[in-house]
Design a protein around this nucleic acid. Structure first.
Length: 205
DNA sequence: GCAAGGATATTCT
DNA sequence: GAATATCCTTGCA
Protein backbone atom coordinates (compact mmCIF):
# COMPACT_ATOMS: atom_id res chain seq x y z
CA UNK A 1 0.00 0.00 0.00
CA UNK A 2 1.49 3.37 -1.01
CA UNK A 3 1.89 6.05 1.63
CA UNK A 4 -0.10 9.15 0.84
CA UNK A 5 1.26 12.62 1.41
CA UNK A 6 -1.35 13.19 4.13
CA UNK A 7 0.13 10.29 6.11
CA UNK A 8 3.63 11.80 6.26
CA UNK A 9 4.55 13.62 9.49
CA UNK A 10 4.87 17.34 8.85
CA UNK A 11 8.16 17.77 10.74
CA UNK A 12 11.42 16.71 9.02
CA UNK A 13 12.89 14.92 12.03
CA UNK A 14 9.65 13.13 12.86
CA UNK A 15 9.35 12.12 9.23
CA UNK A 16 12.83 10.60 9.23
CA UNK A 17 12.04 8.48 12.27
CA UNK A 18 8.65 7.56 10.81
CA UNK A 19 10.24 6.30 7.59
CA UNK A 20 12.30 3.63 9.36
CA UNK A 21 10.48 0.36 8.72
CA UNK A 22 8.59 1.60 5.64
CA UNK A 23 9.26 0.27 2.14
CA UNK A 24 10.91 1.66 -0.96
CA UNK A 25 9.35 0.26 -4.14
CA UNK A 26 10.44 0.65 -7.75
CA UNK A 27 8.11 -0.82 -10.37
CA UNK A 28 9.87 -1.35 -13.69
CA UNK A 29 9.06 -3.10 -16.97
CA UNK A 30 11.23 -6.05 -15.98
CA UNK A 31 9.78 -6.38 -12.51
CA UNK A 32 9.47 -4.91 -9.04
CA UNK A 33 12.33 -4.02 -6.74
CA UNK A 34 11.44 -3.35 -3.13
CA UNK A 35 13.00 -3.30 0.29
CA UNK A 36 12.48 -2.17 3.86
CA UNK A 37 14.02 1.17 4.80
CA UNK A 38 16.32 0.43 7.75
CA UNK A 39 18.40 3.63 7.94
CA UNK A 40 17.68 7.29 7.21
CA UNK A 41 19.02 10.73 8.10
CA UNK A 42 17.26 14.06 8.59
CA UNK A 43 18.50 17.34 7.08
CA UNK A 44 16.10 19.83 8.68
CA UNK A 45 15.64 23.55 8.08
CA UNK A 46 18.55 25.58 9.44
CA UNK A 47 21.04 22.68 9.39
CA UNK A 48 24.32 24.02 7.98
CA UNK A 49 25.18 20.65 6.40
CA UNK A 50 21.96 20.51 4.39
CA UNK A 51 22.23 20.97 0.63
CA UNK A 52 19.39 23.48 1.01
CA UNK A 53 21.21 25.63 3.58
CA UNK A 54 22.59 28.06 0.98
CA UNK A 55 19.08 28.66 -0.32
CA UNK A 56 17.51 27.73 -3.62
CA UNK A 57 20.06 26.67 -6.23
CA UNK A 58 19.75 25.12 -9.68
CA UNK A 59 20.66 21.70 -8.30
CA UNK A 60 18.63 21.60 -5.07
CA UNK A 61 15.20 22.74 -6.21
CA UNK A 62 13.62 19.39 -5.34
CA UNK A 63 14.31 19.92 -1.66
CA UNK A 64 11.96 22.90 -1.85
CA UNK A 65 9.04 20.90 -3.27
CA UNK A 66 6.08 19.77 -1.21
CA UNK A 67 7.06 16.90 1.07
CA UNK A 68 7.17 13.49 -0.59
CA UNK A 69 9.22 14.39 -3.68
CA UNK A 70 12.55 12.81 -4.64
CA UNK A 71 15.76 14.79 -4.42
CA UNK A 72 18.59 12.93 -6.19
CA UNK A 73 22.12 14.25 -6.04
CA UNK A 74 25.59 13.08 -7.04
CA UNK A 75 28.22 13.26 -4.30
CA UNK A 76 31.94 12.57 -4.43
CA UNK A 77 31.54 12.28 -8.17
CA UNK A 78 30.58 8.64 -7.87
CA UNK A 79 27.48 8.07 -5.77
CA UNK A 80 23.88 9.13 -6.36
CA UNK A 81 21.83 9.62 -3.23
CA UNK A 82 18.08 9.44 -2.84
CA UNK A 83 16.34 11.90 -0.55
CA UNK A 84 12.71 12.78 0.01
CA UNK A 85 11.64 16.37 0.50
CA UNK A 86 10.11 16.85 3.92
CA UNK A 87 8.51 20.28 4.30
CA UNK A 88 6.00 22.42 2.47
CA UNK A 89 6.57 24.21 -0.83
CA UNK A 90 9.32 26.80 -0.68
CA UNK A 91 11.01 25.37 2.42
CA UNK A 92 14.18 23.38 1.74
CA UNK A 93 14.63 20.20 3.81
CA UNK A 94 14.75 16.47 3.31
CA UNK A 95 15.52 12.99 4.55
CA UNK A 96 18.31 10.86 3.08
CA UNK A 97 17.67 7.15 2.52
CA UNK A 98 20.86 5.41 3.62
CA UNK A 99 20.10 1.68 3.68
CA UNK A 100 17.42 -0.78 2.62
CA UNK A 101 16.91 -4.47 3.34
CA UNK A 102 16.14 -6.13 -0.03
CA UNK A 103 12.73 -7.84 -0.28
CA UNK A 104 11.52 -8.12 -3.90
CA UNK A 105 13.59 -8.23 -7.08
CA UNK A 106 16.79 -9.41 -5.45
CA UNK A 107 17.91 -10.96 -8.74
CA UNK A 108 17.48 -7.57 -10.43
CA UNK A 109 19.63 -5.93 -7.77
CA UNK A 110 22.29 -8.60 -8.10
CA UNK A 111 22.34 -8.02 -11.85
CA UNK A 112 23.27 -4.37 -11.20
CA UNK A 113 25.78 -5.21 -8.49
CA UNK A 114 27.37 -8.51 -9.57
CA UNK A 115 29.12 -10.56 -6.93
CA UNK A 116 27.88 -8.40 -4.04
CA UNK A 117 26.46 -10.34 -1.07
CA UNK A 118 22.80 -9.86 -0.19
CA UNK A 119 23.58 -7.91 2.96
CA UNK A 120 25.55 -5.29 1.02
CA UNK A 121 23.24 -4.86 -1.98
CA UNK A 122 21.58 -1.69 -0.66
CA UNK A 123 23.63 -1.02 2.51
CA UNK A 124 24.79 2.57 1.97
CA UNK A 125 23.21 5.54 0.18
CA UNK A 126 25.19 5.15 -3.04
CA UNK A 127 24.78 1.39 -3.15
CA UNK A 128 21.04 1.73 -2.60
CA UNK A 129 20.54 3.87 -5.69
CA UNK A 130 22.54 1.48 -7.85
CA UNK A 131 20.57 -1.54 -6.61
CA UNK A 132 17.26 0.22 -7.22
CA UNK A 133 18.25 1.67 -10.58
CA UNK A 134 17.84 5.28 -9.45
CA UNK A 135 19.79 8.04 -11.20
CA UNK A 136 19.62 11.78 -11.72
CA UNK A 137 16.50 11.46 -13.90
CA UNK A 138 14.50 10.61 -10.77
CA UNK A 139 15.16 14.02 -9.26
CA UNK A 140 11.91 15.85 -8.58
CA UNK A 141 9.57 12.88 -8.92
CA UNK A 142 6.55 12.57 -6.67
CA UNK A 143 6.99 9.53 -4.41
CA UNK A 144 3.38 9.61 -3.22
CA UNK A 145 1.67 8.57 -6.45
CA UNK A 146 2.03 4.81 -5.94
CA UNK A 147 3.37 4.51 -9.48
CA UNK A 148 6.94 3.87 -10.61
CA UNK A 149 9.02 4.83 -7.56
CA UNK A 150 7.06 5.07 -4.32
CA UNK A 151 7.00 4.56 -0.56
CA UNK A 152 4.96 1.72 0.91
CA UNK A 153 3.64 1.04 4.38
CA UNK A 154 4.17 -2.32 6.06
CA UNK A 155 1.49 -4.88 6.78
CA UNK A 156 2.33 -5.22 10.45
CA UNK A 157 1.52 -2.13 12.45
CA UNK A 158 3.96 -2.79 15.29
CA UNK A 159 6.18 0.20 16.08
CA UNK A 160 9.76 -0.71 15.13
CA UNK A 161 12.55 -0.18 17.63
CA UNK A 162 14.51 2.77 16.28
CA UNK A 163 17.91 3.97 17.44
CA UNK A 164 19.38 7.44 16.86
CA UNK A 165 23.00 8.47 16.37
CA UNK A 166 24.94 11.30 14.85
CA UNK A 167 24.97 11.34 11.08
CA UNK A 168 27.66 9.77 8.89
CA UNK A 169 30.22 11.46 6.67
CA UNK A 170 29.85 14.98 8.10
CA UNK A 171 32.42 17.18 9.79
CA UNK A 172 29.97 19.70 11.21
CA UNK A 173 26.71 19.55 13.18
CA UNK A 174 27.89 16.30 14.74
CA UNK A 175 26.10 16.90 18.02
CA UNK A 176 22.62 16.26 16.69
CA UNK A 177 21.17 12.71 16.68
CA UNK A 178 19.59 12.90 13.24
CA UNK A 179 20.40 9.43 11.94
CA UNK A 180 17.73 6.83 12.63
CA UNK A 181 17.95 3.11 12.05
CA UNK A 182 16.13 -0.13 12.71
CA UNK A 183 17.87 -1.25 15.84
CA UNK A 184 17.91 -4.98 15.17
CA UNK A 185 18.69 -4.85 11.46
CA UNK A 186 21.85 -6.34 9.95
CA UNK A 187 21.33 -4.24 6.82
CA UNK A 188 22.36 -0.92 8.41
CA UNK A 189 25.45 0.93 7.13
CA UNK A 190 28.15 2.49 9.24
CA UNK A 191 28.87 2.16 12.93
CA UNK A 192 26.12 0.79 15.15
CA UNK A 193 27.77 1.62 18.43
CA UNK A 194 27.90 5.20 19.77
CA UNK A 195 24.15 5.14 19.71
CA UNK A 196 22.50 7.69 21.90
CA UNK A 197 18.93 6.98 22.91
CA UNK A 198 16.91 3.87 22.15
CA UNK A 199 13.21 4.38 21.76
CA UNK A 200 10.09 3.38 19.90
CA UNK A 201 7.33 5.34 18.27
CA UNK A 202 7.01 9.09 18.57
CA UNK A 203 9.20 10.99 20.97
CA UNK A 204 11.35 14.10 21.21
CA UNK A 205 14.77 14.94 19.84
C1' DG B 1 36.30 -7.13 11.23
C1' DC B 2 38.79 -2.21 10.63
C1' DA B 3 41.93 1.67 8.61
C1' DA B 4 44.07 4.04 4.89
C1' DG B 5 44.24 5.75 0.25
C1' DG B 6 42.56 6.73 -4.36
C1' DA B 7 38.85 7.76 -7.81
C1' DT B 8 35.53 10.87 -9.21
C1' DA B 9 32.10 15.42 -10.36
C1' DT B 10 30.35 19.35 -8.62
C1' DT B 11 30.29 23.30 -5.61
C1' DC B 12 32.34 26.75 -2.85
C1' DT B 13 36.23 29.86 -1.37
C1' DG C 1 42.56 24.84 -4.62
C1' DA C 2 39.73 22.56 -0.96
C1' DA C 3 35.72 20.20 0.53
C1' DT C 4 32.21 16.89 -0.13
C1' DA C 5 25.32 13.57 2.74
C1' DT C 6 30.74 7.75 -0.93
C1' DC C 7 32.60 3.38 -2.51
C1' DC C 8 36.14 0.13 -3.64
C1' DT C 9 40.53 -2.18 -2.98
C1' DT C 10 44.32 -3.39 -0.31
C1' DG C 11 46.64 -4.61 3.88
C1' DC C 12 46.52 -6.18 8.52
C1' DA C 13 44.31 -8.29 12.45
Amino acid sequence: MPLGRDELPVDTIELARFMVGKYLVHDMPDGRISGQIVEIEAYPVGDSTSHAFQGLRPYNGSMFLERGHAYVRLTYGTAYMLNMSSETVGIGAGVLLRAVEPVDGIALMEARRPGVPLRDLARGPGRLTVAFGIGQSFDGRDLCTGRDLWIGKGEDEADPIVAATKRIGLSREMHRPLRFYLSASAYVSGPRRLLLPLFTGVSDV
